[in-house]
Amino acid sequence: MSNYYDNIIDMSNRGVEVSLGGYPVRGKDFAWNTDLNISVNRNRIESLNNAQINSYMQDAFIVGKPAGTVKGYIVDHIVQNMDEVNELNAKAVEKGFAEYQSGIGVGDFLMKDTDGNGTITSDDRQVIATPEPKFFGGWTNMFTYKNLSLSFLMQFSCGGEAVYSNLGEEISGVLGQSVGRELYGNTWTPERTDAKYARLVAGTMSYNYMANDRFVFDTSYLRMKNITLSYSLPKAWINKLYLSNASLFVTATNLFTITQWPGLDPETVATGITSMGTNNDPYPLSRSFSLGVKLQF
Results as ranks from 00 to 15, higher is better:
26 R>L: 12
26 R>H: 11
26 R>G: 01
27 G>R: 00
30 F>A: 11
31 A>F: 05
32 W>G: 09
32 W>N: 07
36 L>D: 08
37 N>F: 10
39 S>M: 03
39 S>W: 02
40 V>D: 09
43 N>P: 01
44 R>A: 12
45 I>C: 11
47 S>R: 08
47 S>Y: 07
49 N>K: 05
51 A>F: 07
52 Q>S: 09
53 I>E: 05
55 S>T: 14
57 M>T: 07
57 M>W: 13
61 F>K: 03
61 F>T: 01
61 F>L: 13
61 F>C: 03
62 I>E: 04
63 V>F: 10
65 K>H: 15
68 G>K: 00
70 V>G: 08
70 V>R: 11
71 K>Q: 14
72 G>N: 10
73 Y>W: 09
73 Y>E: 07
75 V>C: 14
75 V>M: 13
76 D>T: 02
76 D>G: 10
78 I>W: 14
78 I>P: 09
79 V>K: 04
80 Q>A: 08
80 Q>M: 09
83 D>S: 08
85 V>P: 06
86 N>F: 13
90 A>L: 11
90 A>G: 08
92 A>M: 04
93 V>Q: 15
93 V>M: 13
95 K>T: 04
96 G>T: 07
96 G>A: 07
96 G>I: 08
98 A>S: 14
100 Y>T: 02
100 Y>L: 04
101 Q>C: 09
104 I>V: 14
104 I>S: 02
105 G>M: 07
107 G>I: 08
108 D>A: 02
109 F>M: 00
109 F>Q: 00
110 L>P: 01
111 M>K: 03
113 D>G: 10
114 T>I: 07
115 D>R: 01
115 D>W: 04
116 G>N: 15
116 G>H: 13
116 G>D: 13
117 N>C: 02
117 N>T: 04
118 G>W: 04
118 G>Y: 02
120 I>H: 13
121 T>W: 14
121 T>F: 12
123 D>C: 08
124 D>L: 05
126 Q>V: 12
127 V>D: 04
